[in-house]
């Protein structure tokens, strides 16, 4: 049985994808516990920072999703850590300051549209953390995209936001803001207020993930963005 510190809970079409950290001496590595069937958890009533117990199998995985481990489900909750501690642990897991280091391969811009991808069979992993120097949200009625500035000065543009907590929070913001030009005003709130809170945090940190093969490419997406959104930020809405 293994204990995993849950770090990423992301939305997938069919449910949720979950990633945790496993301690390996002084460092940590990411592990993606898969549900007993399929790749997505249909329900996952836990939070980031929870320490959960899993029975993991070591069936060979397909690159770049080398973190995949089929499990028999969550066996129990062993504890939880604060968000600050969680980000501290993430700094000791897979991290990179530049594009090339994220997945140890070349990252490409989509020349036919938006988004960023890696070619199949090039990435050596499917999740990586990075510090964030700046962030910009772009909200559509059914989707949120984000652009990030990495410490290297490189930009990750138009990443789909699959972070469960941020999606739920933005959905609440959408409910709260009503009236004319609503989406425009929500976009301004995200970029003028929330982004400011986020960047004023001592440690803005993102986890970038790779999709499964989609249109013959692995697309980059925003798995997690720390600090997680706070209810107190709603005060600024008034």
């Amino acid at each position: 049985m293994k204990k995993l510190l849950i770090t990423d809970i992301t939305r997938m079409v069919q449910g949720f994808c979950v990633i945790g950290l496993e301690r390996q001496g002084q460092s940590f590595c990411s592990v993606r516990p898969l549900p007993p069937w399929g790749n997505a958890w249909t329900g996952f009533p836990y939070q980031r920072g929870d320490i959960l117990q899993f029975l993991l199998s070591s069936i060979p995985t397909v690159s770049p999703h080398v973190e995949d481990h089929p499990s028999s489900g969550v066996l129990g909750k062993a504890g939880q850590v604060s968000e600050a501690d969680l980000v501290g642990y993430l700094h000791k897991a897979e991290t990179s300051e530049n594009l090339r280091g994220l997945f140890k391969c070349v990252v490409n811009e989509n020349t036919k549209g938006s988004g960023v991808y890696v070619e199949p069979d090039t990435a050596l992993r499917s999740v990586c953390g990075c510090e964030v120097l700046n962030v910009r949200f772009q909200l559509f009625s059914e989707a949120v995209r984000v652009t990030l500035l990495l410490p290297s000065g490189e930009i990750l543009r138009d990443l789909p936001v699959v972070d469960r907590d941020w999606n739920e929070y933005i959905a609440r913001v959408l409910q709260k803001i009503t009236g004319a030009n609503r989406l425009h005003r929500v976009n301004r709130f995200l970029n003028l207020v929330m982004a400011e809170y986020l960047l004023n945090d001592a440690n803005p940190f993102a986890r970038i993930g790779l999709t499964r093969l989609h249109n013959e490419k692995h697309w980059l997406m925003l798995d997690s963005l720390f600090p997680l959104p706070r209810m107190a930020w709603f005060d600024q809405l008034s």
Binding site: V13, N110, K112, G113, S114, G115, F140, E142, A143, R145, D158, P160, H214, N215, W219
Partner: peptide
């Protein structure tokens, strides 16, 4: 199209 490609097309 899926939802991700849909947004890509609109941005394009």
């Amino acid at each position: 199209l899926d939802s991700m490609a849909h947004v890509d097309v609109l941005l394009c």
